[in-house]
């Protein structure tokens, strides 16, 4: 199985104009992923599926990730002159990273029995129905999983043949898997006859007659 660097260089040669970034993964599993820009995702996916050395014909897992806007604090050593003496002082540098949504694909090869290669694409922002590219035309197995991403994350995957809600009902508003989703207090509230009775009672008994 080729390393992400090898795949990257061959991909960039095969798909003209594609820029691929390798994202690090520090945990012991160490599966690094390939981040592809939206303009070249479809071409890159076709290359990964059809290339005779890779043959990633099996798209196992497709999922979304919500990365809200965060402040990243980094400790940087800065040289400063304190009382005429040069000293190294640690400073905390804060940068804000704008929020975005991510679609992650785990690809395996059934023919050559290797994998996984992790492919990622990102949306520009966290707007309602932020656009990304659907890979259902390349791997049919993405169909329901991408519908689920649309349903729960609100990523509009362009090129999907049948993009509807799948787990939530059709009239549902909001995207439950986003980090800032607030569920309603009571899903099952229905007005009851008691509401009416209370209203009538309020009219009947003015506020000052509280017994």
């Amino acid at each position: 199985m080729e390393t992400p660097e090898q795949i990257k260089s061959r991909l960039e040669a095969a798909v003209p104009g594609a820029k691929i970034e390798i994202l690090p993964n520090d945990c012991p599993a160490g599966e690094r992923s390939l981040l592809v820009g939206p303009a070249h995702v479809l071409g890159a996916a076709k290359f990964l599926r059809d290339d005779p050395q890779l043959r990633l014909d099996f798209c196992s897992n497709v999922t979304g990730v919500d990365w809200p806007k965060t402040e990243i604090a980094e400790k940087i050593k800065v040289k400063q002159i304190v009382d005429g003496v040069e000293k190294e002082i640690e400073e905390v540098k804060k940068t804000t990273r704008p929020g975005f949504l991510e679609v992650v694909y785990h690809l395996y090869s059934m023919e050559l029995k290797h994998g996984p290669v992790v492919l990622r694409q990102r949306t520009a922002n966290r707007d309602t129905e932020a656009p990304a590219v659907s890979l259902t035309p390349v791997w049919r197995g993405c169909e329901f999983q991408e519908r689920e991403i649309f349903d729960l994350f609100g990523i509009r995957l362009e090129g999907h043949p049948d993009l509807r809600r799948i787990l939530m009902w059709d009239g549902f508003k909001g995207f439950p898997m986003r980090k800032d989703y607030v569920p309603p207090d009571d899903f099952e509230y229905e007005p009851t006859p008691h509401d009416k009775v209370l209203e009538q009672a309020k009219k009947q008994y003015p506020p000052e007659v509280k017994a």
Partner: peptide, 16 residues
């Protein structure tokens, strides 16, 4: 666990 990500799979009776 330390920051990072992992994908694990088994052969369940219904599939992967």
């Amino acid at each position: 666990p330390k920051a990072g990500e992992a994908y694990g799979r088994v052969e369940a009776p219904k599939g992967e």
